[in-house]
């Protein structure tokens, strides 16, 4: 078989839709929770309305930078319109209702919000938009979704979908972490600054959680060697993402021969990398106030799992929910 044929076959592989469906649910839920937080805090107009309407967004007299403002005019009500569309699309993506269209609408609405307040749009928002674009062209809505319920009469049909979107998301994680690691060149992230970055972050008033800020200087000093080690591991782990596609490929082709492949799979290097990532993001969520950043990154991790493993987890979870529901029903009605 020629190289071109192998390349075509590689992108034509199919797999159970469960991994992409779980990804879709997690990504949609993270975006929805963030938009809901904006609504709860009453910041919709503050973040996206024109300055003349009490917002921090672009002036009504400025050249329109968003399509909505260019077509409909700049006003607080149009900022609300984009926000509501984004919320509805995020909910639809999470539920898997008209998944492709919902994901595309969400990308456009999310991008519109970004243009209205560029400084309020962070790296994690870009990452989630990238992921939503991939999911829009995937079969992520074919199971665990309202779309599946309409087509099959139940939520969890067995459907096989192209696996390339999951490969794309693995490559996205690779680029994300590798560049984040490479750009950590300032002294505190290197031996020149004694790997003091995490020690310093925990004292930055805009980012450290109240719990971190309450740590006494003595305790922080005592913890500093541990934090230096954590800084080193963080940089090593992020730069190590460069080999992620190779580890992923070895795991996907584990039935083939080869010493390196056998060693990588036996040593569970991919699983170790993933475990370090989970620990890193959960530690950030506990010690710093980074909003959806840790959760948005973790939402993409199911791309690294085997689709069959995800399907088993989903099936087990469904069985457990059914057992609990039956138990609750029996408790309510003992007869």
């Amino acid at each position: 078989m020629s190289l071109v044929e192998r390349w075509i076959r590689f992108w034509d592989r199919h797999e159970p839709a469960d991994a992409l469906a779980v990804l879709r649910i997690l990504v949609g839920a993270v975006v929805l929770s963030d938009l809901a937080e904006v609504g709860r805090l009453g910041l919709v107009e503050a973040l996206w309305a024109p300055i003349e309407d009490g917002g921090i967004g672009p002036s009504r007299h400025a050249r329109p930078i968003s399509l909505t403002y260019a077509w409909l005019g700049a006003s607080a009500s149009h900022a609300w319109l984009i926000y509501v569309i984004a919320c509805m699309a995020a909910l639809a993506v999470t539920l898997g209702a008209r998944t492709r269209a919902s994901a595309l609408v969400l990308v456009v609405a999310y991008a519109e919000l970004s243009r209205l307040s560029p400084d309020a749009d962070r790296g994690i928002d870009v990452l989630l938009r990238n992921a939503l674009l991939v999911l829009a062209f995937s079969g992520a809505g074919k199971t665990l979704s309202y779309d599946a319920f309409r087509a099959h009469g139940h939520l969890h049909p067995f459907v096989r979908v192209p696996s390339w979107p999951r490969v794309f998301l693995v490559l996205q994680l690779t680029v994300l972490y590798f560049w984040a690691g490479i750009l950590k060149q300032t002294a505190p992230w290197t031996a020149l600054g004694g790997y003091s970055a995490l020690f310093l972050v925990l004292q930055q008033p805009h980012y450290a959680s109240f719990a971190s800020l309450a740590l006494s200087p003595e305790l922080l000093a005592a913890l500093s060697p541990l934090l230096a080690m954590a800084t080193f591991v963080t940089v090593f782990w992020e730069r190590g993402a460069l080999v992620l596609p190779l580890l992923f490929y070895f795991r996907e082709t584990r039935t083939r021969t080869g010493r390196v492949r056998a060693f990588v799979n036996r040593a569970r290097l991919l699983e170790i990398w993933v475990a370090l990532g989970v620990v890193f993001h959960l530690s950030l969520a506990l010690s710093l106030e980074l909003g959806i950043f840790p959760w948005g990154c973790l939402a993409l991790y199911p791309a690294l799992a085997r689709p069959a493993a995800i399907r088993n987890v989903v099936a087990r979870t469904a069985r457990t929910i059914r057992r609990i529901a039956r138990g609750a029903a029996r408790a309510r009605n003992p007869r």
């Binding site: 749009d121 790296g123 680029v175 310093l200 972050v201 008033p205 805009h206 800084t231």
Partner: peptide
């Protein structure tokens, strides 16, 4: 431009010795 997507990832570059307090 219209999807506001990119591949520039300067994520979590905090950790400088100088910072600000509002």
């Amino acid at each position: 431009r219209y999807t506001d997507t990119r591949q520039q990832w300067g994520l979590f570059l905090l950790g400088s010795r100088q910072c600000f307090r509002l």
